[in-house]
Design a protein around this nucleic acid. Structure first.
Lengths: 332, 332
DNA sequence: TTGTAAGCGTTATCAG
DNA sequence: CTGATAACGCTTACAA
């Protein structure tokens, strides 16, 4: 049988060191009131037995798990992994581990994830899933789980949030283009790409309507190859336009298709990548893009959560502005 | 004070339903031997009190945490997030959560991470950090933690591994080039980029030596911009070469610098991206690259771990071969 | 079918 | 300074 030796417990250490388990506990928690001599005895026993305390038992006894739950959508976008990176580093610096929960962009799964977060007994949660509403988040925080919501404007008792400043800048870009540019604008609609995109799409529509401009929504798959092929077809008949794509790879698909169709960028075809990453600068033509430093978002979220858990988060809502970087795919 | 109501426990549910806590436990664990009537009473009480069992207490009682520890290097490379994605999905399908531990590429941190994995009481671990050796992994598995090591050929009692088939293919590519190509080869050395790169670099050297060929190692920073600037300089004096770069962004830096220096790809400058991602196909020129499906690696790792935990992993070592895709940056 | 009680591995509150 | 002992919230024989 694969019965390896059972986990060494604090009792065995106590026995080996000839003290009580209480003393061992004091040693591993660096409590004062332990004679150097006994401390040494205990430490040697620990070393000898290769003892590691059980985080589980500690968590149960102290009701602190040093675990942070992170809920993210399943899509493996570069910007999400950037955020995860900021999160992991900030968490590590504070001595927390991260438990990852993935969801799709749908409400049921998001709520199921919530339940798993609750039962998993985390000390706090960072939730990047805009399918959840105030009720859901209040619900989880009623379990004494402080929450930072990302991309979801919600504040409540133990709930803080980080939102992205996209729409203002986006409108500005459009309005400026209405004045100085001359091409018709096309928005790439991606099904189920989350509420952020949906909100931007709405901005796109209303800004056009307010300006009395015509526009078009193009339905797209969230895949480079498919989009590339579609646009090769598209550019057979349409020879110019200003295209707004959700992410770099989609924007690149349009750029590549345009070039391969003999169109000039940005003279004939202009493209804006809405959620830019570092690839916007690596791809050729370099992509004009809107940008948010997701690594920063991750770090900030962890910092806010940390404050929230200590009951000293004053600014419960933090807004991170996006920036616009003009590169080769737009005129301005 | 922020004293929200305390967590509802199984006792309160039992009291509310007028049964004992054992019965409640049976209900939440779907044990048979519970009258529909009592089951209903209990379920109503659960609903009414909005009760969620504590995963912590369950884990302690059953010594199963349904948690898998994942150790990954801190670098936020696309291929790592791809793997993470495969991992998260496979884990979710099996009802596990993932606890993430990040390390840098150094042995001490890796060992510290090991300790955290051990105390965190996970049911199994997936370790993608090639700084650890057999001893370290045996050590963790002596705590009854089954382990799958990725990119590290180690098998032991409760240890399985996934390795990458890189070197053979790599040597093949080089040897073929020795026959048909004519440029001098340059290997981009990146400091602290892990043992996989180091191993490939060694292959590079020995293959050249065996063939009696001269070569060069170029020291590089792991940054697109820095590499791009360096190569702009480099191409002022050197006008041709076959360059081997660790990842897509570095390969793109060379390609862009070459083009911006008026050099032709692949006639003057050839480039191979060693760890290709989907961007190899998006970038222009498209990058010839070696490729491993890291999402698959993640899924496979989870599957092997799952088998290992059930004591029915027969093939403890699984090798995943890389493939070579010729694209625009090489002649063949 | 249901209840009682002994763990699971710690921490923490008392006495001593 | 150290040692009993009661939690922490749940599972699981064993009894009833």
């Amino acid at each position: 049988m694969s019965k390896t030796k059972d986990r060494v417990t604090i009792y065995e250490v106590a026995a080996a060191a000839g003290v009580s388990l209480a003393t061992v506990s004091r040693v591993i928690n660096n409590h004062k009131n332990v004679t150097p001599a006994t401390r040494k005895k205990v430490e040697e026993a620990i070393e000898r037995l290769d003892y590691r305390p059980s985080g589980l038992a500690q968590a149960l006894a102290t009701s602190k798990s040093t675990n942070i739950g992170v809920v993210i959508p399943r899509a493996n976008y570069v910007y999400i992994s950037n955020m995860l990176n900021g999160l992991t580093e900030a968490a590590r610096d504070r001595g927390y581990m991260l438990s990852i929960f993935v969801t799709s962009h749908n409400k049921e799964e998001a709520e199921a994830a919530m339940n798993r977060v609750i039962t998993s007994h985390v000390d706090g949660a960072i939730i990047f899933d805009d399918e959840l509403d105030v009720g859901d988040l209040q619900h989880i925080s009623s379990y004494k789980v402080p929450v930072i919501a990302i991309n979801n404007k919600i504040t409540a008792d133990k709930v803080g949030c980080i939102t992205f400043g996209y729409e203002n800048l986006f409108r500005q870009i459009l309005n400026r283009y209405f004045e100085e540019g001359d091409k018709k604008m096309y928005f790439l609609h991606v099904h189920n790409a989350g509420r952020l995109l949906a909100r931007i799409e709405r901005s796109f529509v209303t800004t056009h309507i307010e300006a009395g401009r015509s526009y078009a929504i193009l339905s797209s798959d969230d895949s480079y190859t498919k989009t590339y092929v579609d646009f090769l077809e598209f550019f057979k008949t349409t020879k110019s336009g200003y295209f707004l794509a959700y992410r770099d790879s989609l924007a690149a698909a349009i750029a590549n298709a345009a070039r391969d169709s003999g169109l000039r960028i940005p003279e004939d075809v202009e493209i804006l990548s809405i959620i830019g990453t570092k690839y916007a600068n690596i791809l050729r033509p370099t992509l004009s893009s809107m940008f948010i430093d997701m690594q920063l978002v991750g770090r900030k979220a962890m910092q806010m959560l940390s404050d929230l858990m200590d009951d000293k988060l004053i600014q419960k809502h933090h807004k991170i502005e996006s920036t616009f970087v003009k590169r080769d795919t737009t005129m301005f």
